[in-house]
Design a binder for these strands. Structure first.
Length: 215
DNA sequence: TTCCTGCACT
DNA sequence: AGTGCGGGAA
């Protein structure tokens, strides 16, 4: 079986087993961008607390957030961890949004994917995973998101080597799958859900895993 | 105590 | 390649 076919089998198996994910959790493109920064190396439940702190004060809007001083913003997002550096990263992203689209995120979607991705990666604090999360989930661009779970799952199924880097792994998917936003959206979500529940870092629980039959 | 949908800096 | 950033939940 080709690796392309196997990737689609993985997808269909996970979707049939777990059901659709309805990702990304977030009511607006901007909220999705904020969540993408806050969830860097951080449990989503902690991100949710930080988002709620902002939302309950009606601060989850670019203009309002940009006018907050860094100290207050950091305090509000404290539950998400790395709060000082993440406050700075949010401000960096806000400055990008101001310059690029005057805070009107849908305007970004007219830009070419590769060009927009390069620009996002120049923002301090926006790395490849955060950039692709914003592109895919906030802007609905067909940019596949990979993460620690993705490489772990594919490595344990002998599809890629252990130390594959981010862009190699992203290309692995994008070279083998149709460039489809809905497919990329759901595939990444399913891999994260699988990683959290079964494909743990130190103690994988292959019994009961939807992909167990592929081992 | 470990781990969490990373990234920048040295 | 190694390290700092960090609170919260299991």
């Amino acid at each position: 079986m080709s690796s392309s076919t196997l990737l689609m089998h993985f997808y269909e198996t996970l979707l049939a087993s777990l059901g659709p994910s309805q990702w990304w959790p977030g009511e607006t493109p901007f909220e999705i961008c904020v969540g993408a920064v806050l969830t860097q190396n951080t449990n989503w439940s902690n991100v949710q607390k930080a988002i709620n702190n902002l939302k309950s004060r009606d601060l989850l809007h670019p203009e309002k957030m940009a006018s907050l001083d860094d100290e207050l913003l950091a305090e509000l997002i404290r539950p998400s961890g790395y709060f000082r550096i993440k406050a700075r990263r949010l401000k960096n992203l806000l400055e990008f949004l101001r310059l690029e689209c005057a805070y009107h995120l849908p305007d970004l979607s007219s830009q070419d994917l590769q060009q927009l991705r390069d620009k996002l990666l120049q923002v301090k604090g926006i790395g490849p995973e955060t950039a692709d999360s914003i592109l895919l989930y906030a802007l609905e661009k067909p940019s596949f998101v990979v993460d620690a779970y993705t490489s772990r799952i594919l490595n344990r199924h002998l599809l890629v080597h252990e130390d594959i880097d981010y862009h190699e792994l992203r290309d692995f998917f994008m070279d083998r799958l149709p460039r489809d936003v809905a497919l990329y959206n759901e595939y990444h979500a399913l891999l994260v859900r699988t990683g959290k529940k079964w494909c743990n870092k130190n103690n994988p629980r292959c019994d009961g895993c939807p992909l167990g039959s592929y081992l």
